[in-house]
Each structure stands twice: as structure tokens, then as C-alpha cells.
Amino acid sequence: MLSRTADNLYWLARYVERAEYLARILDATLRLTALPLAYVGAGNEWQSAVATAGCADAFAAAYPEANEDTVTHFLAFSPANPSSIRCCLESARVNARAVRTALTVEMWDTINGAWLELKKWSDGPSSRQDFSSFLRWVIESSLRFDGSAYRTMLRNDAYWFSRLGLYIERADNTARILDVKYHLLLPAIEPVGGPLDYFQWASILRSVSALTAYHWVYRENVKPWLVAELLILRDEMPRSLASCYENLVQNADRIARAYGRQGLAQRQARTIRARLENSRIEQIFQEGLHEFLNDFIKDNNQFGAAVTQQYLV
């Protein structure tokens, strides 16, 4: 397969995943800001949404203040923010168009259809209601894309490279949302079970579509260290770092087997997975959640760079 094709597939998957993640952050933020202040504290949720999306600096350079209008515009519709939902979907289609021959009809239909539909919102949403349906639509488009990839793609290198993009992006997103909210997850700050924390934690879970999963796994109230454990270490949780790396190791190995050659990327993926497997949440908290997440984000980026170096250029 052409390196450029693999590169396009990899980024296509990353952009679609990122668009969905942004939509989930915005959706969770909308819910939080709809609650009375007594329940959520006086922190600026919109500022925190920008930080979670990983573009606080770019935002600060463009806007004086983080509020509903500026943040929804910046994260969802701004043509100037390369990581806005709109730009992600546009970049996804550019990548898709460049590799039409490697996509199934269903995948192309989904991504091209989403791109056409996006035009409906080119002037921004007409109301909050409209914005909500926009977010739902983004999430659905991503699900449909992922589903059609899963259901229709041949299981060959094209599929594996797109999975690598998806899971690297997802791992990065999960780590970031935990890192932005890590102070809330530290058990000592607030009395456990206070309403303030409850809604914040629920919101974290909602951003990664894990609220229901949490209850199924733990069968108890939302507790901060369990939230962290679920999203970092539990491999049955599809957005957890452990699950992402389970998948990354598998897909990187399939590529290596098909090409008959292991490389740096495979070794790095296994190292990161081993670290996750050997960690316990108590120990992570002791040594510092923030430091742990920071290291993870760095390692994850390095793994991405190794994949690029080994296959995509």
C-alpha cells in the first residue's frame, strides 16, 4: 500500500474521532452550564472545555473571554481553528477524497454525506436546540463512519492503519479530559459524594460516553478514583487508555505480521500497554495523576511519531 494512502487513512480516522470527541465535550458542557451554580461550582466550564479540547492557547489568542458563544463557535464552527468540528470534518473528507480507492462505498457515503450536510450549519446554529441537534448529528456521523468501517472494510493494512489513527486519537482524548479535570479526581479536595463533585464526575463520564458503563462495572456511586480507574486501567471500557492500547498493540502486530517485520512502533505499543497493565490506581494517585497522564500523552505522541516514521512517509 502507498505510504500516502496509509497516511490519509490514519488521519481520516483521527479527524472523525476528534470531531466526535469535541461534540461530546460540548454536549457535556452544555449540560453542566444548565445546572444551578450550587451544583457545579463557580469555575468557568467553557474555559475548561477549551482546555479539554487541547487548544487553550489558540483560543486565548483569538478571544478575550470564554463563554458559550465564543467557545461553541471556536470548537464547533470556526474555520480558523484547525481542530474545530467543522475543520475536522472537512479535513476528514479531504483525506477521504484522496484515498477513495481505499474506502468502501459506505464509508465514503458517510463522510461525503456528512460534509454535504455540514453546509446546513455554515452560518452557525440558529438556536440552542439547533446546536444540540448539530452535536447529536456529529456523534451519529462518527458512529456511522466507525460502524461502516467495521462492517465493510477488508481486514487488511488499510483497515489496520485506520484503526491505529482511531485509537491513538481516542487515547489522547481520554487522557486529556482526565488531565484537565484531574484536580477533581483527587480524593482529598472535597468531601466525597458532595453534589459539586458528583456532577463534574458524571460530566467526565458523559464526555466519553461511559456513565452507564460506570454503573455496570462498579455498581456504586460515582467515586473519583473509580472514575480514574475506569478510564485508565479497565480494558473492558472501550475508551480507556488500557483498551486503546490493547487495540493498538493488536493492530500494530497485524501490520507487522502481514509485512513480516516488527519495528519500533510495535515495541513502543507493547511497552505502553505493559505499563498500563502493571499499574494500580492507588499507586497512580500516590505518584501523581497529573504526572502519569502527562507522561502518557507524551508516550502516546511518540508512538504516533514512530508509526509515521515506520510506515507513513
Binding site: 500500500m1 502507498l2 505510504s3 500516502r4 494512502t5 477513495r100 480507492t101 493494512d157 501490520i255 507513513l312
Partner: peptide, 27 residues
Amino acid sequence: ADKLGIELVEGRDLVVKDEVVHMRTTE
């Protein structure tokens, strides 16, 4: 390219070495 089952390449995907044309692939 799709119907023929061949690679769709751009100039940057090809490289000439010792008067032989190659394409850059993942392998």
C-alpha cells in the same frame, strides 16, 4: 484506479533510483 485495482499515485509517491521507478509503500 479503483476499477483497475491499481495504485493511484501522485508524483511525490514515486522516486527514481538507478533509472528505475519505484513507489513509496508501507513496506
